[in-house]
Design a binder for these strands. Structure first.
Lengths: 194, 194
DNA sequence: ACGCTCCTATCGAACGTTCGTTTTACAAAA
DNA sequence: TTTTGTAAAACGAACGTTCGATAGGAGCGT
């Protein structure tokens, strides 16, 4: 990708995730990327297209990382822990993170909302397919994979969002969050009898 | 409350949760409440104050409902199930629901954001205190109550948000969601050995 | 090397709209 | 007569987007 496009997209991602999509103006993006308004519209068709491009990148980044984890052939319990850690790492890195971006769906044009929702559901379905696979192999207890996937994603996002607040509670959660989440998720999904 | 104020607040809550705070204009609220712009500003100081009033009401509604549950003296496992059901019920009822409202924090003025965050944290701390109580009594395994509270809230919000999409998957989640969530949460928190 | 055209990237002004808010006006009640 | 509730017009600012101008390089026939 052209360096200018990348700079614009990075600036937009940062601002969208900090302030929200609707609260971020095109002029603020232009200022942060050190380009003019016209330049942005030369590279991107609209503000919504920028959000969709960012969402696509973020989901793809996570899907690829999980795919790599999968190829390591780890036990499911370890893999769950790794995915929780992955989410924390991506969230604490500079740059846009999925959760704030995905929260901007309301108020979008119907078409853009459809596309954004489809991306999220595709990612959750990917998680659900991993869970279903684990169930078939007896590594995960019998449960509804889709609901379990939404529950897992929701708990990770909720805890990691709190870890970004910047107070001392947030620091503690940054340290202990991945471990506690892995413990919770593994107990919730482990194939042991009730 | 004066019927006019109530009508305005209800209209604002509905629109905020449907379209998001920033995507909802004061004129749309006025139209939906069948009053004029001036009337809204006669009753509320600003748009932000309306959001904060709505948030306060929603959190209070949940806190009160949980308090009533607590007085029934049910076992923890049942209580967890009831709280999950409670969230689903409140979400599916017409009217604003906490999750979409609480997502509107970014882009608010610093003061309003502080107040809104404090409300959410107070509610999570209330959940955490319930969990800590359960731990002391040996009804819940030893864990970090705060992280567990955020994880629980996150998973319930995530699953119930999906239950609102309107397709056939959403219908299935509406039926099975509370039960599956209760199962997941209880396994995650049960005091049995690893 | 030169003029010439074409294409791409960039800029910043300007468009019309909508924003949240303020102000003015008016009617009914106290 | 003052207060209260409502309406509607108007305010300045910011919004997302479009547009015309400008600059620079690539390709090319001469």
């Amino acid at each position: 990708m052209k360096p200018t496009e990348q700079r614009i997209l990075e600036a937009a991602g940062k601002l969208f995730s900090q302030q929200g999509f609707h609260a971020t103006g095109m002029r603020a993006i232009a200022r942060a990327a050190k380009v003019s308004l016209g330049t942005i519209y030369h590279h991107f068709k609209s503000k919504e297209e920028m959000l969709l491009a960012l969402l696509r990148d973020e989901y793809e980044k996570r899907r690829k990382a999980i795919e790599e984890l999968k190829e390591e052939g780890l036990p499911v319990s370890v893999m769950i822990q790794r995915i929780a850690e992955l989410h924390f790492r991506l969230l604490l890195e500079e740059g846009p993170s999925l959760r704030p971006l995905a929260q901007s769906l309301r108020g979008l044009s119907p078409m853009a909302k459809r596309r954004a929702l489809a991306m999220r559901q595709a990612f959750v379905n990917y998680l659900a397919s991993l869970i279903a696979e684990g169930i078939e192999r007896g590594q995960i207890r019998r449960c509804d994979p889709t609901i379990a996937a939404y529950a897992f994603l929701g708990m990770v996002e909720s805890v990691s969002a709190r870890a970004l607040e910047g107070d001392e509670v947030a620091e503690r959660i940054q340290r202990m969050g991945p471990r506690e989440l892995a413990e919770i998720a593994w107990r919730a999904l482990a194939p042991k009898p009730s």
